[in-house]
């Protein structure tokens, strides 16, 4: 008997998952105005708007992040400080995950993961332009030639420069009207700001310690 009851209720519980419930849907107005009732048929979720600037931001940030991953690759064989190695691993995990996130975001919206040709065409060799804060090829070469404590210092100053550029990119994004209205996009961009700002602070502490 007990088993039977249990079986029956299990079925019922499983079913609630699909049902959901309905209740009056209301929309408040500005203070001082009335709250209105919304017909269920009109309550469908608004589609988040995707602006040009959002797409360009994502494409540019993928490019930007890829350099951080390259820099950590150098750190693994050339760096000295164990704390810095650990931080480098965290940066590379963060930025690799975010690159994947950005690629998926673009692909789901039918956008290419690299910038349109006309944005990059004027650059020598047709490659993508350097995004704010990215190390120049000369800076990267100097970094790759260094080792030990000298490498650590160059890595820290370079990564601080690199991350600061990401903060600029986020600022630039939100300066563009209509950008960042998609909540996923808004959260992602503010998370980049939060994470990299905190990492910059950690790196500045490290830089002070190894001097």
């Amino acid at each position: 008997m007990a088993i039977r009851v249990a079986f029956f209720v299990t079925l019922a519980l499983g079913a609630t998952v699909a049902w959901g419930q309905s209740a009056p849907i209301v929309q408040p107005g500005a203070p001082g105005t009335a709250t209105t009732t919304v017909a269920p048929a009109k309550a469908a979720l608004a589609v988040p708007k995707v602006a040009d600037a959002d797409v360009v931001f994502m494409q540019g940030m993928i490019h930007h992040h890829s350099q951080a991953v390259e820099m950590v690759d150098l750190l693994r064989t050339r760096g000295k400080s164990k704390d810095l190695l650990a931080l480098g691993e965290r940066i590379t995990i963060s930025q690799s995950d975010e690159m994947r996130f950005m690629k998926e975001w673009l692909m789901e919206r039918g956008k290419p993961v690299t910038m349109a040709h006309d944005h990059a065409a004027h650059m020598a060799g047709g490659g993508m332009p350097l995004m704010p804060g990215m190390l120049t090829s000369a800076q990267m070469a100097t970094l790759a030639a260094a080792k030990g404590a000298a490498f650590d210092r160059l890595f820290l100053t370079g990564m601080i420069q690199h991350h600061t550029g990401a903060l600029d990119m986020v600022d630039d994004l939100f300066d563009i009207p209509g950008a960042g209205q998609d909540p996923v996009m808004f959260d992602f961009a503010t998370d980049i700001d939060n994470t990299q700002r905190a990492e910059i602070e950690i790196m500045r502490r490290m830089l002070k310690e190894i001097r």
Binding site: R109, G110, K111, A116, G178
Partner: peptide
């Protein structure tokens, strides 16, 4: 679900705007 208004989408490459996944 209404299609997004044809405002800011053009010019960054790619296909015609799709409805973003939600």
């Amino acid at each position: 679900t209404t299609a997004p208004p044809p405002t800011e989408q053009q010019g960054v490459g790619g296909e015609a705007p799709r409805t973003p996944p939600q």
